[in-house]
Design a protein around this nucleic acid. Structure first.
Lengths: 219, 219
DNA sequence: CGCTCGGTTGACAACCGTCAAAGCGTGTGG
DNA sequence: CCACACGCTTTGACGGTTGTCAACCGAGCG
């Protein structure tokens, strides 16, 4: 386990981003730090909590009957998660980066807050809508595009979700995770990245820091 | 335009399925029949309505900047839709079968009903959750599987959503729509269907009626 | 009849997954 | 301190699957 972060510092981080939606119930929230791959929750847990990523990333995985794994969503700093049932399939949410920090809110409190405060009720609905929207964007990526387009789109999405478009991306996830997310093999992801470098579309600083130089609209 | 269905008959159909969630506000609802490809709503419309498929199918399409189209969701008889914003991309919902019948409810009424009745509020939330769940299932399909697996999974999904597992499926959509949905080419969809017939996994009666004979768990 | 549209089949090239091997960084133990 | 192992990343070679192009069939329609 990585060293814990002081609680006050976590709330400062959340407030710093200016989107402390669930601030009113932070007294009942719990903060936890995970190492990479550690499970945050799974199908077997009775999910009566809401979660939010503060630092790092989490991955929403589905386990297929034959044991294969697929990542159906990434949660980055600021994202809420805890949405439920995946008709019959085994679901887990795990930390995707080492030292990921996650806040846990009691579900009952969130819903009570949402009932009493229409603004928050709308915010809660917004979480589901964003999940749908993310899914749909990903279908476009998974869709009719070639491997290079997939990887480029993935980078663009990450850039947009983490900081701003065309900035330096701090990839929180491994190549294996990217491959699982894009429905490609690890090797193809690597090849695509080298191709993109070769064509001066991205620049890599180390293994997990990438700068987008020229971003074509995802075809 | 196909001939209109008497209003009373539409409500009878909905009641027959025993899930007339929004019955209390049916007085304010409007019924409309579409021909295949006709737009139900798009990004440019101010979406202040909720919709529900009564007969046939609708497709939720995203338009890419270069003009290509992708189907991100199908709505079948009984499904609600009307969920919103797709971060920047142009969205349309069109009828996917000829003579599709759709009921339109004023959004304000739905939300008022949801506020006053917690059961309906939960039902409304459920719609978004189902959309997320469908998306995730589809990611599995789009994911690491071969064309035959994709098509087989698609048929299984349609069987489950329309009537019951392993029954006769009345495909409401064209091969082109299936291809767009599964991120395959039309030709590959055809080849997969003939392969599945050859292997006695499905039986086709006409072009759009398919019976699942032996359904392997989607790998 | 000719036209269009949806569906089907064939041939071929390109792309991607699989297998294999090697480089690299980190941590562990001798 | 060094050797070693392990995980992550990268590159190469090869075969299979799939997209593309092309052609054909059948149904519906003016």
């Amino acid at each position: 386990m990585s060293q814990e972060l002081p609680q006050s510092q976590v709330w400062a981080l959340i407030r710093f981003r200016g989107d402390d939606l669930l601030g009113p119930i932070k007294a009942t929230a719990a903060i936890h730090t995970y190492h990479c791959g550690e499970q945050i929750y799974g199908t077997d847990d009775i999910r009566n909590d809401w979660y939010r990523v503060v630092i790092g990333a989490a991955r929403n995985c589905l386990l297929l009957p034959d044991g294969r794994r697929r990542i159906v969503d990434f949660f980055l700093a600021g994202d809420f998660f805890g949405l439920g049932a995946e008709n019959g399939l085994h679901l887990t949410v795990e930390a995707a980066s080492d030292g990921a920090v996650v806040v846990r809110y009691p579900r009952r409190q969130v819903e009570a807050l949402a009932d009493s405060n229409p603004l928050i009720g709308r915010g809660v609905r917004e979480v589901a809508l964003q999940a749908v929207s993310r899914s749909h964007s990903r279908m476009l990526i998974l869709g009719r595009v070639t491997a290079i387009e997939k990887v480029m789109s993935f980078l663009a999405e990450m850039a947009q979700r983490s900081s701003g478009p065309d900035a330096m991306i701090d990839l929180q996830v491994s190549r294996y995770d990217i491959a699982d997310y894009l429905a490609l093999s690890v090797e193809t992801v690597c090849r695509a990245l080298t191709q993109l470098q070769y064509r001066h579309r991205i620049a890599m600083h180390g293994k997990r820091r990438i700068k987008i130089i020229r971003n074509l609209q995802l075809r």
